[in-house]
Write a protein that binds this DNA or RNA. Structure first.
Lengths: 247, 247
DNA sequence: AGCATTCTTTGACACAGATCAAAATGGGAA
DNA sequence: TTCCCATTTTGATCTGTGTCAAAGAATGCT
């Protein structure tokens, strides 16, 4: 995983408050408040954190690693509905069963909060509730952006869109200069990419190869990708303006 | 539009709080609070309420009629990302520009709240903030459910899924007996359905005809559909259990 | 009523992506 | 190193949905 430390980003992956360019709300006192109801759980790559329908007596935030939210039909067709990165939030206050299957795609550390006290805290601490609303609205925007990708984009555009998202996130976290070549580490297998994009893994592989052949990306090993020209990639993704699935 | 009145549903489409089987929060005093910052706007079928990117100094809720949220790429490809029914909420506290294009698909009445005072009210009235969070989480679930539809379902399953959603909503509002044949009024053109499902209007037309041929539905006129057997329709939609895109 | 316009259906054909199958690559264990 | 097994790539073929085109309904206007 990329380091979260950077001059411009204050990350607060240990509290349920997502990081921001400047996270004004994440002051000491909030962490104190949470201190007595939180505990940590770690998972190794490939493990399932919970199955859809499981009873869930906690909410959590990702401290490190990558996890996925997926939905599956009886016949096995699978769709990823969310990608959880450090500081992302899982679970729903007021709901005792998991709506989606959560899986660790890399080694994963989560910070869990017992649900009941967490819900109480929301009620008594308005600005945490407010922050939670803001995060949920961001996720809703991301989900809707993804609906456009799933419903209307070609396989090549879908791949480019996914790479853009990951590249943009890394660029923000690294604070790298705009216009510079970006190196990104893919935290997903071809199959996971396919599940995210509503494609088959064969199509994913073919389109990744095509983007490599057309010099939009360079591969070193199987999971390490270099993007020499971010604007070119965004063009391939069919994104108007700068996209912005991650706020 | 269907009447919202029913023995079991208390609707509160005039306040920004979505209806529920029993809407415990919608008491008189809240409406009073809102009284001085709200105003009404009406639109006729086909009108655009606002374009993506427009400046927006209000948030609103749908009083009557149906509206859609859509996203469009430069080349014209369009994806609907939300269907707004009476009592649904539009706009985002803290954001001054519209993220999506909002269009009236039927004659539409909206109840608008000036953004600044509305935001203040959220900060001073915790249970309205709480209600807003709950509504947003419901929408997020709906969006994610739709990601499965867009990414993994066949054209026939997509049509069946859309009809299920509309049928289920009507069934709830009518309070009709389970197992009984349902009559639903489609508030969407074939093109709008296509935009929702990530299909072309020709494919939508063909699949609707196929479902009619196979006696899953009956058409009377072009927009009026009868579902003799709801379980059969859900089966066609490929939904495990009862689906539940609308909570 | 007759006409114009918009929406819907149906047909013929093309193509993107799925499916089935097999080979190649790479990383980890001993 | 060498082998083993996961993952990925590549190939051949098939199919569902898109595209292009035209004919039919429905709706509204004069």
């Amino acid at each position: 995983m990329q380091q979260l430390v950077s001059p411009t980003i204050k990350s607060c992956s240990e509290c349920p408050i997502r990081h921001r360019a400047v996270c004004a709300k994440c002051d000491r006192d909030e962490l104190e408040l949470l201190e007595d109801i939180k505990y940590y759980r770690s998972f190794s790559a490939g493990q399932t954190v919970m199955w859809a329908g499981d009873h869930m007596d906690f909410v959590a935030s990702v401290v490190s690693g990558v996890a996925t939210l997926t939905q599956t039909m009886e016949d096995g067709r699978t769709q990823m509905v969310g990608l959880l990165l450090p500081s992302d939030f899982v679970g729903r206050p007021g709901r005792a069963s998991a709506a989606y299957t959560v899986s660790a795609t890399t080694d994963l550390m989560m910070c869990c909060f017992r649900r009941k006290p967490f819900e109480q805290m929301i009620n008594t601490t308005p600005h945490i509730a407010h922050r939670l609303l803001e995060m949920t609205l961001d996720e809703l925007d991301a989900a809707r952006e993804w609906m456009l990708v799933l419903g209307r984009k070609t396989a090549r555009e879908k791949i480019a869109s996914l790479l853009s998202i990951i590249a943009r996130r890394d660029a923000v976290l690294d604070g790298s200069a705009p216009g510079k070549a970006l190196e990104i580490e893919l935290p997903l297998t071809r199959e996971a990419m396919a599940d995210y994009l509503g494609l088959t893994l064969e199509t994913v592989s073919r389109q990744v190869s095509a983007l490599k052949r057309d010099k939009v990306i360079t591969l070193s090993g199987k999971r390490s990708i270099t993007v020499p020209d971010m604007d070119r990639l965004l063009l391939e993704a069919g994104d108007d303006s700068d996209g912005g699935i991650l706020s």
